[in-house]
Every structure is written in C-alpha cells, then in structure tokens.
Simulated assay, not measured.
Amino acid sequence: MQHLSLAGLSEDGRRLLMVDGAGQEFSLDVDVRLRAALRGDSARLGQLETKMESTLRPRDIQARIRSGESPEDVALAAKTTVEKILPYANPVLAEREHVARRAQGSSVRRRGGLDSGARTLGDAVAGQLRALNVDPESVEWDAWRREDGRWALTAEYSAGRRQGHARFAFDAPGNYVTTENDDARWLIGDPLQESEATPKRDDLQQARERRQAPPVAAEQLVFDETAPAEPTVDLTETAARVRENPAAAPAEPTEPTAQPAAEVEPEPEAPKKPATKRRGRASVPSWDEIMFGGGQQD
C-alpha cells in the first residue's frame, strides 16, 4: 500500500492535496464520508456507504423488512449484498420476533362464541399438538405489519401427515388474534368450515341426471291414498237375512233376475229394519225385493 502525505488544500477548499514519497501529487475530495471518518463516526460512515452502494435508502430497507420481506429479497431489490443491509434489517427482524411472541400470549377470538378452555393462542396450539404427540416448540412463528396497521401472524407446522401454513391476524392494541384460514383453525382445535368437510351440491348436474333418467313404469307409480275412493256396495242387510234363513241363500252369487209373482208361494213378510244410508255408497235391494220383485216403493 502506497503512503500519502497531506500537502495542503485546494484553492476551492473541496480537495485535499496529497503527495507520495516520490513527489507525485494526488488529490482527495472532501465530502461527508471523509468528514464522518475524521470525526470517528463509524455508524454514520456505514450508513453513507450503504446509501451510496444501494438503490434503497436505509429507511426503505427497514420498511420492506417490516412488511414481511426477507433480507435476501431486499438485498436483491437494492442490488447489494445481504451483509450490507443487515445493520438496518436486524432491528426490524427482532421487532417481528417480539410481536410473534406477544401474539402467542394473546386471547383467541373464535367463530360463533366457541370456547375450547384455552386462555391464550399458545395454550390452544400446545393443547392441539400435544394431543398428537407433537412438540409445540417445533412450530415456526413469524409476524409482520400489514397495511391496515394490524400484524399478520403465521405458523409453519408439521403434525404427522398434516403440514400447514396457518395465518392469523393480530390486533396489538386489543391483544387478541383471529384465524384467517383452515390451517389456523385446525391448529387451535376449532372445527373446520363446512365447505371443506362437505362437497358443494351441483344442482346443474342433478338436473341433467333427472332429464336423462328413464321414464317410470306405470306399475312403479305410488298409489295416492288421498284420492276419493270408488263407491262400494253395502251387503249388511243381505248377510243378515241369509243368517236367518240359510235355505234361501243361493249356491253362488248371481246377478239379480226378476221372477214371475204367480210361480212363487207368498210368505209372510218379515219386519224390515230401516235401511241406513251411508253417504257416498249405493243402496242395495233387500233379499225379498230380489225374490218377489218390485222396488222399495211397492
């Protein structure tokens, strides 16, 4: 390394004049970095170096880290190395870690007033995982600030065959969290939404199946018991007369035919019981009327 000695100051006062051992002259610009170095302000000097080598200001770097970006992503956007931005990213990363721990100690607002008995988010997660023989410490928590001022809280977990990325919303002033996806609801032991457990009904598909179904045969039709019944014949009086005079009963039922009155020996007419008419039923002639002919008026 070549050693230079201060020879003086330029006429405009903006450069230092330097000379080496061979008498060759050099100049050095007097800027804020040189002044910070002469004062021994190393922090200010580091900020200035990052600002000059990066397309992002330190404030922009911290804002992007606070909104959830990783140091690697910010370094790529700033066109610099991760080591150059870590002095500004580390304080914000520590803030995100602190918020994630605080959120685990907050209360959980569940849907429909559900209450699992757990007092905090951390208790609910621990109860769910320990029941499956999973260490709650295996969950990877992270948090970052959202545009609405609340904090997004995430939890990467693995429980047997189930792996998930749970998302919560943390309200720091109210000190409570709410679930934002099914992985988060499962992680705290809440029942999943109906849309995940029950498939949606396809009404259009059901209509197509009904149109394509074969017509129903007549014998498969269901009889409607509410329909009006056909009128029936009341044989009560006829049965009573047959029981009183079995010899007068015919061998088999035949259609009633009129017989000549002269060929039948008259018999004393038995007292008749008044016929009871039933609504909606046809009247049947008595046995005497069948044997002797004539109607009720005769």
Rank of each mutant, 00 (worst) to 15 (best):
L6M: 11
E147N: 02
A261G: 05
L187I: 12
Q47F: 03
R161H: 07
L38M: 15
W144E: 03
G189D: 04
I85K: 02
R167C: 02
L56N: 02
G68T: 05
A240H: 02
R66I: 05
L153Y: 06
W151R: 01
E289F: 05
A262S: 15
L9N: 04
E72M: 10
I290M: 13
E269L: 12
A103V: 04
A124E: 07
P246C: 08
A249N: 00
R146Y: 00
T198D: 02
A184T: 08
D142S: 14
R162Y: 10
E269G: 07
V30S: 02
P191N: 08
D31F: 13
P199Y: 03
A94F: 06
N175F: 05
V125R: 03
A261D: 12
M291K: 13
R44S: 13
Q212A: 15
W287L: 15
S70F: 09
S70W: 11
R211Y: 01
R150G: 00
L16H: 08
Q206W: 10
P246N: 05
G105P: 01
G122C: 07
G174N: 04
E140H: 10
L6H: 06
R241D: 14
G295Q: 11
G113K: 02
A213G: 04
R35I: 14
K273A: 13
Q128N: 12
L221T: 09
G127K: 06
A275M: 12
D142E: 09
R161A: 11
G117Q: 10
A258Q: 09
Q212T: 08
A248M: 01
A143W: 09
D29Q: 09
L56R: 00
A240C: 01
D171I: 08
V216N: 01
P215Q: 04
P260W: 05
A103Q: 08
R64W: 13
G105E: 14
V233K: 03
E225K: 08
L153Q: 07
S5T: 10
T81P: 01
Q193D: 13
V233H: 01
L221D: 07
D135V: 12
A184H: 08
V284T: 15
